[in-house]
Simulated scan of single mutants.
Amino acid sequence: MKGILLVNLGSPKSTKVKDVKTYLDEFLMDEKVIDYPWFFRSLLVQGIILNFRPKKSAAAYKTVWTDEGSPLIVYTEKIQKKLQKLVDVPVEIGMRYAQPSIENGIRKLKEKGVSEIVLLPLYPQYAMSTTETVIEKAEEVRKKYFPEIKINYIQPFYNREIYINCLAESIREKLPENFDALQFSYHGVPERHIYKTDPTNTCNLTDCCSRDKNPSHQFCYRHQCFKVTEEVIKKIGLPKEKVLVTFQSRLGKDKWMEPYTDETLENLPKKGIKNLAIVCPAFVSDCLETLEEISVEGKEIFEHAGGETFNYIPCLNDEDRWIEVVKTLCKEKLNEFYII
């Protein structure tokens, strides 16, 4: 019997400081997120970051928390329920960090008689700290607890036409009538992560992202972000000069991908861009990084610098057209189980 497991990032159990600290400890101690040797990672995370960050993050989570709980968990559950109505196999969810865990999701499917799982990491683009760590964790859990289970992983779908059409339609419907620019703000990663995930050794973080069929593209998060932007604005029909790409959520003093979202928001009004629309296509579900970092903090930065209107465009969340994309991606992989 076959089943589907949808995997998202995860969220603290509650907005209590102790729960946020537990979540951040698991998240930041992942070597795919902070890729220092264990000793130095532990020194940084457990010796420094966890002494001040949980309180600040807990306050931020309180601003986005709903009566149902964490927005990211709530939206993932809604995707699961809608998808379940469209497919004839069991659908469960798992989070890379915290609960419900990937182990919990696989166990639930096994209890329903599932022996072959299609796993969809809910990240459009490939990155070491997203897709790669999800697959690595799922394989670790499978080998340890469920060696008889087979898992078929869905690859990043950033360049799939069904996804591009879905995202473009969603953005087009939400764009304000008058805006000076549309900003695509993607979650940032340290530049070294781009090199680490490139087995072809052809990435130079300069002109290779725009080269046709560069061998590093399937592993390059930066290229995939620019590709999503390029294809979406083609579908919408926006001129390139009205669009910009930036990267948010940097942590620490290491060199992260540029340009930075916060610095860009501060400088845009000086360049005459007073009416801004902004979207975050690294996420399919609204979460702390979109609802608080962008639509609250980002708006404050922009308006304080002289901006007049700031329009945050929500993620795909549980839109029906997005559920159709998820269904198509999953069904393709379910069918592969039948190929001998």
Rank of each mutant, 00 (worst) to 15 (best):
Q99Y: 15
E103G: 12
S129N: 02
S11T: 14
L265E: 01
I135M: 11
P176M: 08
P71S: 09
I48V: 15
N317M: 08
Q80W: 04
S57F: 14
V141A: 05
E308Y: 08
L86R: 08
D88Q: 10
C203T: 06
E173A: 13
L167P: 01
T22L: 15
I4T: 01
W38E: 10
D198C: 15
H223T: 05
T229I: 07
L50V: 12
D262A: 09
N214I: 15
F146S: 00
E111Y: 06
E92R: 09
G94N: 02
K137M: 13
S249G: 04
A60V: 07
H217P: 01
S216Q: 12
S42P: 00
P124Q: 04
Y23C: 13
P215A: 12
E116H: 11
G94Y: 04
I313D: 00
E308K: 15
R53Q: 14
Y153H: 10
E263C: 06
L24W: 11
L72V: 12
V325W: 01
K150L: 12
L268Y: 11
K299E: 13
F52T: 10
I273F: 15
M29K: 09
L334S: 00
Y158S: 07
K82L: 15
Y312K: 03
L205H: 03
R211G: 00
V118D: 01
N104K: 11
F247C: 03
N317Q: 03
V118T: 05
A138F: 06
E332Q: 06
P176L: 06
R222F: 09
I278K: 06
V232Y: 02
N165P: 00
F27R: 13
P100Y: 03
S295W: 01
G3C: 02
F146A: 02
P156Q: 09
D318I: 00
T22N: 13
V141C: 06
I194T: 00
N159M: 05
F283W: 07
S185Q: 04
T328R: 10
F226A: 11
S115I: 06
T200Y: 07
K144Y: 04
F310S: 02
